[in-house]
């Protein structure tokens, strides 16, 4: 009987220990990131990342939440109902100008209209660009969560690479395929956004000159791209890298290792 009691106690301890270990592990990986997206072809990189398993490749559990319009999506982002959002550039920038504190971490899809006469017009271009999609995070993402934001962005870059591969696209569910009337670019691209920002007249006299730059987290995109570039040479990633304006490092991160 004593032996049985000892066995029972040992088993209970082992089970407790196992549940603690697995519980901790679960807690670390199971907290899903709630990604809201505009139900529009411009957000398809989010759907590709989910359908092709790129979020999982980055060690993330992502729950997609569809929004019919950007205004309700941005309100959900502000209230904390979602963690990240893929919404219209113009609406996101207007929210930033209104002091919402959002930060852009990645680009998405922009509609192509193929109207060469209208495309000569700056205001037409701004209008078109502002209807594209960008990925934004709220102000309250902490520095400690930077790794997660990089993983999210890396998953969207992977999704872009998938979108450039005809075979891979053919195997995606129909609703998760890129629309040919959109062009896609996961780069949050300060200079492109700055044109939209200026075109929409959002900079006002009370804002510092770097107001917009403080809301575009290009460092995240560059870090994510750098990490993916560590693999085999990939022409799609090389192309993205050639277009990105990342702050170069000039020195070894740890001189002591030299």
């Amino acid at each position: 009987m004593k032996l049985f009691n000892k066995f029972l106690a040992l088993s209970t301890c082992a089970a407790l220990l196992l549940s603690l270990i697995s519980g901790t592990g679960m807690a670390a990986s199971a907290k899903p990131v709630r990604l809201g997206y505009l139900d529009n072809p411009g957000s398809v990189l989010c759907q590709i990342a989910a359908a092709a398993g790129h979020f999982s490749e980055e060690g993330l559990q992502v729950e997609l939440v569809a929004f019919a319009d950007s205004a309700s999506g941005l309100a959900a982002l502000e209230s904390g109902a979602i963690d990240v959002g893929a919404f219209a550039v113009g609406d996101s920038l207007r929210a930033i100008a209104a002091g919402k504190g959002f930060r852009l971490i990645a680009g998405g899809g922009t509609p192509l209209h193929g109207n060469p006469v209208a495309e000569q017009s700056n205001s037409f271009q701004v209008e078109e660009e502002s209807r594209g999609v960008v990925v934004v995070i709220p102000q309250n993402w902490s520095v400690a969560e930077k790794g997660t934001i990089i993983q999210l962005t890396a998953a969207l870059i992977r999704a872009y690479r998938t979108s450039r591969n005809f075979t891979a696209v053919a195997s995606l569910p129909i609703g998760s395929r890129p629309d040919s009337t959109f062009r896609f670019d996961p780069n949050p691209d300060y200079w492109r956004v700055e044109k939209i920002w200026s075109g929409l007249g959002l900079q006002n006299l009370t804002m510092k000159r770097d107001f917009l730059a403080n809301h575009i987290y290009e460092e995240i995109y560059c870090d994510a791209l750098d990490r993916l570039l560590l693999g085999d040479i990939d022409p799609v990633l090389q192309h993205l890298f050639s277009k990105a304006i990342c702050t170069p490092n000039c020195c070894p991160a740890n001189a002591a290792k030299l």
Partner: peptide, 24 residues
């Protein structure tokens, strides 16, 4: 930029990129 340093020595490109994006 965050006022944690009073002086920085971080290349030429990097400060130019920061300045052109609005850093004073």
């Amino acid at each position: 930029k965050a006022d944690k340093l009073d002086v920085g020595t971080f290349g030429t490109t990097a400060p130019i990129l920061f300045i052109t994006k609005g850093s004073e």
